[in-house]
Design a protein around this nucleic acid. Structure first.
Lengths: 251, 251
DNA sequence: CGTATATGATTGTCGGACAATCGGACGCGA
DNA sequence: TCGCGTCCGATTGTCCGACAATCATATACG
């Protein structure tokens, strides 16, 4: 609100390596370079930009880290399509560094899961339901192996999200997933009935999808997450403690 | 599910610059280096890691781009706290590259906004309400300047989110914000009543907070967003077109 | 005591160099 | 013809040394 009209725009002597990175980035974001397209060799970029190879390399590293450019088997550069989990990893780290609490994580997961399953109810396909069923069967088979159950649970919920067919929501959820699902293992250990309740919830969730019953889906999503929270607390963990990479190893 | 047991783990001869980056990253994520802590000079890192300065620089660039390390005024290195908008910028770019549609964006924004205002109803403070009121007054004053209104609208919604006090949700919302709010300008131009309806919605949203009325807050959030969608369509834009940086300039 | 200046440290950029590795061409034997 | 080993050029990862610009700090000066 307190806007002062600036006479001059800020002068930012941008380092050459940044200009290299931004120049390439602009080409990609504008669509002139499409994912998969080869970017020249370092020597070529040196020639085009008229800077030293070290400078080019520093610039490329930036994009490479962001996933905007990749290196194929031969280490040659090509335009990449940054995938969500890569971004999610970063976001996850940021959340850890900002010391967000498990309570925040739980809250967010609650609303995001409900949103996501509501869409899934509308859009799920038979094939997806079959895959979810298969996942449940695998979970039942692994009833005594908590680590495997946690992994399958994570897979189950990722499949649910995909069934919602909204990539914006999917991206929004991923960081919370990465943080909450690892600690599922701890939560499951909290109560001996954990695996049973988890399997029941998964069954009912799939049943909701089959019946296209949003209310039921919501109810069981809530119940499922409350179970998680109870397990978490029973395991002696504190909801108000900041998430960390030890309890919820996000690698 | 179809897991093949691999005999050998993949051999990845990691380049030295990556090892440098990961070594520093580990120190930060483990908490041994806290935000603000100085990292040594390049020469120092050269000594510690026993590699060339070029190599160290390439490694540092990676972290620097991710916001994990910063350079202060003097360009000296210190541990940074990657801020959300930085990550959101990346996420936004990914969404553009994945060609998500405005429909997906609209859907996600709907559920995220509702979730966010529900929390805000519970947690908003008087001071925040005052700031929201001030924003509305500024919007009224700028009634004929669509660009300014769009900017104030964006600010309004960011304030709402902060009032929800859930940083996970905040992070989850940011990419959609970055994409949807810029196109608010186009949506406002779609109908001459646009600004009036926007101001009314904002007024009612703040009123809901004041009364701590979740139903009212939900209702007006929906209405506000449906207005946005109508304006968007009236402006001749297609909801099923992929978001791009032209319509929704995300810089 | 405040200010201007000198000095040293640090970064950004450059040029050149070399080993390791990769892609592709080539030749050879089955 | 196909598979296989070998060679060669291109490319990358890393190193070395260098220099101008800039910043931090100490120092001298008013």
């Amino acid at each position: 609100m307190s806007e002062v009209v600036e006479k001059f725009s800020r002068i930012t002597p941008m380092p050459a390596y940044q200009m290299v990175a931004e120049a390439i980035e602009r080409e990609i974001l504008s669509g002139r370079l499409k994912p998969g397209d080869p970017i020249g060799t370092e020597a070529e970029l040196v020639r085009q930009f008229g800077v030293n190879r070290s400078t080019v390399r520093e610039g490329i590293r930036l994009l490479e880290h962001g996933g905007l450019v990749q290196r194929d088997s031969s280490r040659r550069l090509s335009v990449g399509l940054p995938h969500y989990d890569r971004l999610a990893t970063r976001a996850t780290r940021a959340l850890v560094l900002h010391e967000v609490t498990f309570r925040e994580l739980f809250e967010a997961t609650m609303v995001l899961s409900i949103a996501s399953i509501e869409l899934a109810v509308e859009r799920v396909t038979q094939e997806e339901i079959d895959r979810l069923d298969a996942n449940i069967r695998a979970t039942e088979a692994a009833r005594d192996d908590i680590a495997t159950i946690a992994a399958l649970d994570s897979e189950f919920h990722i499949m649910l999200e995909k069934a919602g067919r909204n990539r914006v929501l999917e991206l929004a959820r991923e960081p919370s997933n990465m943080l909450i699902h690892p600690s599922t293992q701890a939560a499951l250990g909290g109560t001996p009935y954990g695996p049973d309740r988890l399997i029941e919830a998964h069954r009912m969730l799939v049943e909701s999808l089959r019946r296209r019953d949003k209310d039921m889906a919501r109810t069981w999503t809530r119940r499922h997450l409350v179970d998680w929270r109870k397990g978490f607390e029973k395991a002696g963990l504190d909801l108000d403690q900041p998430v960390d990479l030890v309890t919820a190893r996000a690698d």
